[in-house]
């Protein structure tokens, strides 16, 4: 009886360890489990031989890193179908697009009312007149790698950055730009 229990315990432990190795965090990242946001960064302190570590505003350890010991796969390109009517809130979509900590679309695209919109991607001033369907725009934001594997645009849906409703809202906003 005692032996069976031990064997079970060993099997259970080995199994969970196997699962963890594929999903687990690499050991050489700047990470502090005791802090709320987990991701930390080094700040040199004048005339000191030690670094001070500050918390980043977001837990970045959830996504693949550049560590050689990171065994987690990047999410592969995802083809998605927009389900049902769009039901997007354009006003909310604008807030997401023009928020550096959410969609941050304005980092690369010019949007109306932003004097310093980025030039990394095409200006979206009148994207609502380009004749794209809601479903097309939804896919582009969810994961543009489906249309162009070499794209530099973040896969907002596949990477879990924006939710289904967030993306519906952004699509609704983009369709109002005329």
């Amino acid at each position: 009886m005692k032996h069976t229990l031990l064997a079970l315990a060993v099997m259970g432990l080995a199994g969970s360890q196997a699962a963890r190795a594929a999903d687990s965090l690499p050991p050489n990242i700047l990470y502090d489990a005791a802090r709320e946001k987990k991701t930390i960064w080094p700040l040199p302190v004048r005339n000191s031989g030690e670094l001070k570590y500050n918390e980043h505003r977001q837990d970045l350890s959830r996504w693949p890193t550049l560590s050689y010991q990171d065994k987690r796969d990047t999410k592969r390109p995802e083809k998605v179908e927009l389900q049902g009517p769009l039901n997007g809130n354009a006003e909310n979509g604008k807030k997401i697009a023009m928020n550096t900590q959410r969609g941050n679309c304005w980092a690369c695209h010019v949007l109306p009312g932003d004097p310093q919109g980025g030039t990394g991607g095409p200006p979206l001033i009148n994207v609502g007149t380009w004749g794209y369907s809601d479903a097309h725009l939804y896919q582009q934001i969810w994961d543009r790698r489906v249309a162009n594997p070499a794209t530099e645009m973040p896969p907002y849906g596949s990477n879990g950055v924006l939710s289904d409703q967030d993306i519906r809202d952004v699509v609704a906003y983009l369709q109002t730009l005329k």
Partner: peptide, 8 residues
């Protein structure tokens, strides 16, 4: 760039 930093 939204990437988890590594140890110095």
């Amino acid at each position: 760039a939204g990437v988890q930093p590594l140890k110095v």
